[in-house]
């Protein structure tokens, strides 16, 4: 059996097929055996994000119909943000803050800058979509929110993930919707709420998930319940649709994923492009 080297002539013809031909071929090396309930558990991330989007749209709808007053939304969201801020530090005992080196003062500065700018620009933001028809606005918002869900960083390491882009799409959608409201104050409130929900909440979410598994499960259930009840109060048909969608997402799709693993047929060998497993973000920005 000849060695597979090119610098030595083995005397055999060039097209000789030796017994160790394709001996390094491996099949389905990276096929993972999924456990159904762990997949269901992990799918909670998607459920939570969907829940966030639904809550946001619901808040907008309530402000549009006048049920929700801007000041109520503003104070409640601000309170929740403070709570979340406190939890963020408490959860890992302050190690995260020490690592990143951000002071409380810098955080306060960011908040103040953001609030003042948004407040100052809210009349302008209000008039941005005046002349655009409502249908276009709704279509654009739907498109943007779908995009947000698509590009969101759910924790998987895929090429399609772009957290910056998903945040931008969400804020864009919020500006579109906010400009339809009654006055600049409404706009300001909704945009602030959108920022807190789409930018700050995922940070806390990730931390909670890392810290304790039970928390994550509880949160998923909480989100689902809140969304369904709120929708039920507003539009029962939507609530029914939401229930179906959540069931699909949480139970049926994981089942399908597990079943599809049987059909996987991957070929691996020395010809594969090597994967870089190192974390080069420190070097490469």
């Amino acid at each position: 059996m000849a060695r597979k080297v090119l610098y030595e002539r083995s005397g055999l013809p060039d097209n000789h097929v030796s017994r160790n031909f394709l001996e390094t071929l491996r099949r389905n090396v990276r096929v993972r055996k999924y456990s159904y309930w762990s997949v269901v558990y992990e799918s909670g991330v998607v459920t939570q994000q969907l829940g966030s989007v639904c809550i946001f749209v619901l808040c907008w709808w309530l402000m549009e119909t006048g049920t929700l007053v801007p000041s109520q939304l503003f104070t409640s969201s601000l309170a929740l943000s403070f709570l979340g801020y406190y939890l963020y530090d408490v959860i890992d005992g302050g190690t995260g803050r020490r690592c990143s080196g951000r002071t409380r003062l810098a955080d306060l500065k960011s908040v103040l800058i953001f609030l003042s700018f948004t407040y100052g620009l809210s009349p302008l933001l209000k008039t941005l979509t005046e002349t655009i028809s409502t249908d276009t606005i709704y279509a654009m918002t739907t498109f943007m929110l779908l995009g947000h869900l698509l590009f969101f960083d759910y924790g998987a390491n895929a090429a399609i993930v772009s957290s910056g882009l998903s945040l931008n799409m969400a804020l864009f959608a919020s500006v579109c919707l906010a400009s339809r409201l009654a006055g600049p104050l409404h706009t300001f409130t909704l945009i602030t709420f959108a920022c807190e929900l789409f930018a700050l909440w995922p940070l806390l979410q990730k931390k909670l998930k890392k810290q304790s598994t039970g928390c994550h499960g509880m949160l998923t259930v909480l989100f689902a319940v809140v969304v369904v009840t709120a929708l039920a109060m507003v539009a029962p048909a939507c609530a029914a649709l939401a229930i179906v969608l959540l069931f699909l997402l949480s139970f049926l799709i994981p089942l399908w994923l597990v079943k599809l693993q049987l059909y996987k047929d991957n070929i691996h060998g020395p010809w594969d492009e090597a994967e870089i497993k190192d974390d080069l973000s420190g070097v490469l920005h």
């Binding site: 960011s110 948004t118 933001l125």
Partner: peptide
């Protein structure tokens, strides 16, 4: 970029 720069950037970009 800092977080606040990103926020403001998004807002200004939309406008």
């Amino acid at each position: 970029y800092d977080v606040d720069q990103l926020f403001l950037g998004t807002l200004l970009f939309t406008i």
